[in-house]
Design a protein around this nucleic acid. Structure first.
Length: 349
RNA sequence: AACCCCAUGGUGUAAUGGUAGCACAAAUGAUUUUGGUUCAUUUAGUCCAGGUUCGAAUCCUGGUGGGGUUG
C-alpha cells in the first residue's frame, strides 16, 4: 500500500509544466496529470485553434511515458465559453480590453482542475507557473523575467491554499536544463510562445470571438485632430496605446488614445505624451491584504510595477502613480504589489 | 474655353541631368499565457507615348489624371 501523497499536475505540453511534473515525481509524490481542453465542438473553429495542437499531445505523451504517470484530458469547453469567452466578448464590444487569462484562471482553469484533484483524492494541484505562494500570499516568481503572478491575482484564498508552484523558486534556464536532462525533447524543442487558448491563425483574438458569437462587424472611423483619417473593422479590434494594424499612415506613428463604443469612433494621437495617465480608478477588486497608502501598481503583464499612492473606498481604488503611466487601458487588470508580494488587484475603469 | 500648377512604392515626401532616399503603413521574425508596446528584417515607386543626351524622376513635345485662376 502506497503511502505516497498524491498530487495532480496540470500539463500543457510545454517545458514548464513538464519539468514541474518531473520535480514532483522526484520529490516522492504520486503524480497524476490532467489537461483541460477548450477545443471548440465546431470543427470550423477547432481546426484553426492553436490550443490542443497535436504537438501538445505528443509532448505530453512523451512525458507521461517517461515518468510513468497517468494523464487525463478534461473537456471544459462549455465552461470556458460561458465564463471566459462570452464575458470577454462583452467587454471587447463595449470598447474595453479584457484579460481573458485573469478570468479563466479562477473561474475555469484552477476551478476545474482543483475540483478534479479533489475527486481523485489529491492533496494539491501543481502547475508550471512562475510564482510562489507564501503564507497564503502570492509572491513573484524568482525568475522575475518570467513571473506570472500578475495573471493569478483573482485566485481565491481557498484556491491558493490548494496550489503548488514547483517552478516558483527556479529560473527558466534551470527549467530548460532539467528538461534536457530528463530527455524531454519534444517539450524542450517547442516554441515558447503561447497565444490565447482560443486564438486562431490570421486574426486577432477579439475577431475570433466576434465570429464565434455570430455578431456582425461594426466598422467605424479613426479620428485624428477632429478629422476622419481611416476606418477600423470594429472597436473590439482596437486597444489603448495600439500602433500596429491600424492601417493609417500619418507620416509618424499613430496610437489609439480613446475608444467610443457608442459612436464607433476611435481617436488617434501622434504624440505619445497624450497616452499618459496621472490617475485612474480600479474596480471589481480582489484583495488578499489591505492596501497600504503607498504600494506598487502593475497595469499590464510585463510592464514594470510603478510606485503609486492608492486609496480604497466602496470597493473602488483610486490610483495616483508616482510617474504618469502610458496607455492605462480600461478593462485591463491593475495588480497591486508590496515589493514581491501580491496584495490584490482589479479591473481598470 | 484660355492660362497656370502638379503627377515618385499603399500614404506623405526627398533627389533640378550621374547608382531613386526617408517617414508612415504593410509583411515576416524576436519578445509575450490578454490586447498591446518595443526591437530586427523584408516587400514595394518615378502617370502614359515620343524626343534631346554617353546618361532623364529631373530638359522638350503630345496625351491622360488632379488642383487653381480668368470668364
Amino acid at each position: 500500500m502506497s503511502a505516497k501523497p498524491k498530487i495532480l499536475v496540470a500539463l500543457s505540453g510545454g517545458v514548464d509544466s513538464s519539468v514541474a511534473a518531473a520535480m514532483l515525481v522526484e520529490e516522492g509524490y504520486e503524480v497524476i496529470g490532467a489537461t483541460l481542453s477548450f477545443r471548440s465542438p465546431d470543427p470550423a473553429f477547432a481546426e484553426r485553434q492553436h490550443c490542443g495542437a497535436k504537438s501538445d499531445f505528443d509532448s505530453i505523451e512523451q512525458l507521461t511515458a517517461k515518468l510513468g504517470i497517468r494523464h487525463y484530458v478534461l473537456d471544459r469547453y462549455h465552461e470556458f465559453e460561458s465564463r471566459v469567452l462570452r464575458p470577454s466578448w462583452e467587454a471587447y464590444r463595449s470598447g474595453l480590453t479584457p484579460n481573458p487569462c485573469c478570468l479563466c484562471n479562477p473561474r475555469v482553469k484552477f476551478g476545474e482542475l482543483i475540483a478534479f484533484a479533489r475527486e481523485q483524492g489529491c492533496l494539491a494541484l501543481a502547475t508550471g507557473h512562475y510564482a510562489r505562494i507564501e503564507n497564503g500570499l502570492l509572491r513573484r516568481g524568482r525568475d522575475r523575467n518570467k513571473d506570472q503572478s500578475y495573471f493569478l491575482y483573482r485566485l481565491t484564498p481557498e484556491q491558493l491554499a490548494f496550489l503548488r508552484f514547483p517552478l516558483g523558486g527556479i529560473d527558466k534556464t534551470e527549467v530548460r536544463r532539467r528538461a534536457l536532462a530528463l530527455g524531454l525533447t519534444v517539450a524542450a524543442g517547442r516554441k515558447e510562445s503561447q497565444d490565447a487558448c482560443f486564438a486562431c491563425d490570421g486574426e486577432c483574438f477579439a475577431e475570433t470571438l466576434r465570429r464565434l458569437f455570430g455578431e456582425l462587424p461594426e466598422p467605424g472611423d479613426f479620428i485624428y485632430n477632429g478629422r476622419k483619417v481611416g476606418r477600423h473593422p470594429g472597436v473590439h479590434c482596437c486597444t489603448i496605446g495600439q500602433r500596429k494594424g491600424l492601417n493609417v499612415a500619418l507620416g509618424v506613428p499613430a496610437y489609439v488614445a480613446g475608444i467610443d463604443a457608442v459612436s464607433g469612433e476611435v481617436e488617434l494621437v501622434t504624440d505619445e505624451k497624450m497616452l499618459e495617465c496621472n490617475a485612474f480608478a480600479v474596480e471589481d477588486l480582489v484583495l488578499h491584504r489591505p492596501l497600504p497608502a503607498n504600494c506598487f501598481v502593475q497595469i499590464r503583464y510585463r510592464t514594470p510595477a510603478c510606485p503609486a499612492s492608492v486609496s480604497v473606498e466602496n470597493g473602488r481604488v483610486e490610483v495616483v502613480p508616482e510617474t504618469p503611466l502610458r496607455a492605462v487601458t480600461p478593462g485591463q487588470s491593475a495588480v497591486f504589489y508590496d515589493g514581491e508580494y501580491l496584495l490584490g488587484g482589479g479591473i481598470i475603469k
